[in-house]
């Protein structure tokens, strides 16, 4: 019994410690943004690295997600004979929920964990101390450019992903679910609104922010050499996934 209480207490203290660390990081990022003081070269480099290099994985994910959604929609629709609803169902689900969440998770896996690994390696090989020793603020040189690029890039990648997912849905609708393209398109274009797309894109922006903050925090607090880096990446993706799902809940509520 005593052990259990001690464990709960320890867990609570840990949670407070981590939350405090994240908030402190957030505060430092905001402080570096007003007035904006960050390295423009690093910002552009990260935009390229995080954006362009994630395109293949985002396209692959979105394409199959579209396929899965149209299959699921048609399981439902076939029993009711309402083929005209497939385009609407797939579009609505992809734009508002499944698209942003799955793309956010994949982005966290690709870019977020890579970011944690990179920062963590810099910590254990004393490169962060090296920056400080050269009189360069790691906040302005490393963190702020990364946070900004991740928010911008997940937003833009989600736009690409949305388009690809709909293409995938239409294609697999024809191939597997017996839905003609015309039927898919009519149903899609008549029932899916700009508001649905905007709903998803706002989420994407917030998810990008969450991924950026959790991955930078996990990276900067690495301890214990190469082994510690692996552990930090693990923590980063788990925290990001929790953050994405929980914020999705609140966003869905407040955006509707």
């Amino acid at each position: 019994m005593y052990n259990l209480i001690a464990k709960i207490g320890e867990g609570a203290l840990n949670l407070c410690h981590e939350t405090g660390g994240l908030l402190h990081l957030l505060f430092m990022v905001i402080k570096s943004l007003f007035p904006p003081r960050f390295d423009p070269g690093e910002f552009l480099r990260n935009l390229y690295k995080m954006g362009v290099k994630s395109v293949p994985i985002i396209i692959l994910t979105a394409f199959f997600t579209g396929g899965i959604m149209v299959i699921q929609a048609s399981v439902f629709v076939k029993r009711f004979g309402a083929t005209s609803l497939v385009g609407w169902g797939a579009g609505y689900a992809v734009f508002r929920e499944v698209g942003p969440i799955l793309l956010g998770l994949m982005f966290s896996g690709r870019v977020g964990s890579n970011n944690t690994a990179e920062l963590g390696t810099m910590v254990v090989t004393e490169q962060i101390d090296g920056l400080k020793a050269l009189g360069i603020d790691p906040m302005q040189y490393l963190i702020v450019p990364r946070v900004l690029s991740m928010i911008i890039m997940l937003f833009l990648l989600t736009i690409i992903g949305d388009v690809i997912a709909i293409v995938g849905a239409a294609l697999f609708g024809i191939l597997i679910a017996d839905v003609s393209f015309a039927a898919f398109w009519t149903s899609f274009s008549q029932n899916v609104h700009v508001a649905d797309v905007v709903h998803g894109l706002i989420k994407a922006g917030v998810f990008g922010f969450i991924v950026s903050l959790t991955s930078c925090y996990a990276g900067m607090t690495v301890r214990g050499g190469a082994v510690g880096v692996g552990r930090a990446v693990n923590n980063a993706v788990v925290t990001a996934a929790l953050g994405i799902v929980i914020s999705d809940y609140f966003l869905t509520y407040s955006l509707s």
Binding site: A226, G230, V237
Partner: peptide, 17 residues
């Protein structure tokens, strides 16, 4: 030093995919 981090990154993305 970056090996383990990269492996973990690849694992997340590849197993999700």
């Amino acid at each position: 030093s970056e090996g383990v981090g990269n492996a973990t990154t690849r694992a997340v993305i590849n197993s999700s995919l």
